[in-house]
Design a protein around this nucleic acid. Structure first.
Length: 409
RNA sequence: GCGUCGGUGGCGGAGUGGUCAAUCGCACUUGGCUGUAAACCAAGCGACUUCGGUCUUCGCAGGUUCGAAUCCUGCCCGGCGCA
């Protein structure tokens, strides 16, 4: 029995985009969909009830973090991630592959998932120059050694180990262990890393099949396409990963903003159409439109929750930082066009002013982070839902144009 | 009244003859955040500036010194103790 079932309802004419339904053992995901990120089995600052309230259909947790604490065996004892965190819907786990990047090449540097290449020298390899730079993740022959950011202890994660942990965590959809490379690496390194990711993908799949054969637990495994900004590598990766017996696919990598669209297009033209595709770690409104238009079915991103905790909030007229002085006495709602419980009085009469939110952040009151996260998650999840509806209605282009025009002011 | 300790930038609080426009924290201002080392991080925060500097600041007023936030004298203000 297949762990998931994916069906396409409608496509965007002449484009790769589509609206579909993804059935998992713990519920249905209407795609395209935004997955809320709950790294350590919690969407930071939110209760599961509040997560629901944002319209989220699925939560993504992290293998590496849960392995370190409280430990995947312990989560298993409690009946798996979903039961442990008291979330009633579908769940996913990331493989820990991103931590190869964030705790490795990007560790201690001003290097993030999406970089801007205003300075082209940023993309020149620095590999030979930074051998002494401390990293918490080092790539070995067979896997990756991590120095725990919590207590400094050493851990070795192989593809098999990642899959084992993910089986213990028990999410509906799990990911192959991959290496998310830095965009500052050169072609030679990207190619070397890609081959490693491909070997790891095969090993992840084989181990997953082996474990699944002896288990009643139904879990789908997604393979991850890498290849950096190189057309040849991206395509090679899509061919290879797409040819394996995965239930769906992740598209990974740390991108230069300018390269993201081409990379997604190259990949999705090749990946088997009937299986879901997840663009890993992407979630700004412009990028979501780009992804949906180019055939992405699932997104996850820390932006709504991370921004929400800091006071950067999405509105239909662009992002604002409610901490700023100009909002101190602003009696208006955060976004009059938003239907979330923070913005809209129709949910029980609550209607938080910008001034109140401003106050909460300045006073470091944790309700600020909660309300900001509820709003931002609702905003982004709802935006993707509207895209889905627009595909079904056949007016995706119009919706995109209308939204972005206003959003960009 | 006598004694004593003290008065430093929005606040708290370092500094106690040159390296001081003055450590640090908070507040304030503005950025940033894209598979979460993140309820976080960064920059700025006396005034002018052709960005090399220039000027005015450490209760007030004098003084000593090549040089004072730092030493001396007087005054003003505050805490504490004794009357």
């Amino acid at each position: 029995m297949a762990p998931i079932k994916f069906s396409i309802e409608k496509e965007i004419p002449e484009k790769l985009g589509r609206a579909g339904i993804l059935e998992t053992p713990h519920g249905v995901i209407h795609t395209p969909a935004f997955v809320s990120v709950g790294t350590k089995a919690t969407v930071k600052a939110l209760t599961p009830e509040q997560i629901k309230e944002t319209g989220a259909e699925v939560v993504l947790a992290n293998t590496y973090h849960l392995y370190l604490e409280p430990g995947d065996e312990r989560v298993k004892k409690f009946g798996g991630l979903q039961k442990f965190m008291n979330w009633s819907g579908p769940t996913m786990t990331d493989s820990g592959g991103f931590q190869v990047f964030s705790l490795g090449a990007a560790y201690g540097k001003e290097l993030s998932k999406v970089v801007s290449i205003t300075d082209p020298s940023a993309l020149i390899s620095e590999r030979s120059l930074d051998s002494e730079t401390p990293r918490l993740a080092k790539i070995g022959a067979d896997g990756v050694s991590f120095r725990s950011h919590i207590d400094g202890s050493l851990h070795y994660i192989t593809p098999e180990k990642s899959i084992e942990i993910q089986h213990n965590l028990g999410a509906d959809i799990i990911f192959a262990f991959d290496e998310c490379t830095s965009p500052t690496e050169d072609y030679r390194y990207q190619e070397e890393a890609l081959e490693r990711t491909h070997r790891w993908a095969k090993r992840s799949l084989e181990h997953h099949q082996k474990l699944s054969a002896n288990s009643f637990q139904l879990q789908a495994l997604f393979g991850i396409v890498q290849g950096g900004r190189e057309e040849s590598l991206r395509k090679r990766s899509a061919e290879f990963i797409g040819s394996l017996d995965f239930d769906g696919f992740g598209i990974g990598g740390s991108f230069a903003k300018e390269d993201m669209e081409t990379a997604v297009k190259w990949v999705n033209e090749i990946l088997p159409k009937g299986k879901p595709r997840h663009l890993l770690g992407i979630g700004e409104p412009e990028d979501l439109f780009m992804g949906v238009e180019n055939g992405v079915d699932l997104f996850d991103c820390v932006a709504p929750t991370r921004n929400g905790r800091g006071g950067t909030l999405y509105t239909s007229r662009g992002k604002i930082n409610v901490r700023n002085a100009e909002y101190r006495e602003d009696t208006g709602p955060l976004d009059p066009e938003c239907g979330c419980s923070v913005c809209s009085p129709r949910h029980g009469g609550a209607n938080y002013s910008r001034a109140y939110l401003c106050h909460l952040y300045r006073a470091h009151e944790m309700l600020g982070g909660t309300l900001g996260s509820i709003h931002n998650l609702y905003f982004i999840i709802n935006l993707v839902k509207k895209m889905r509806q627009a595909i079904l209605n056949g007016n995706f282009e119009e919706f995109k144009k209308e939204f972005l025009e206003k959003y960009r002011n």
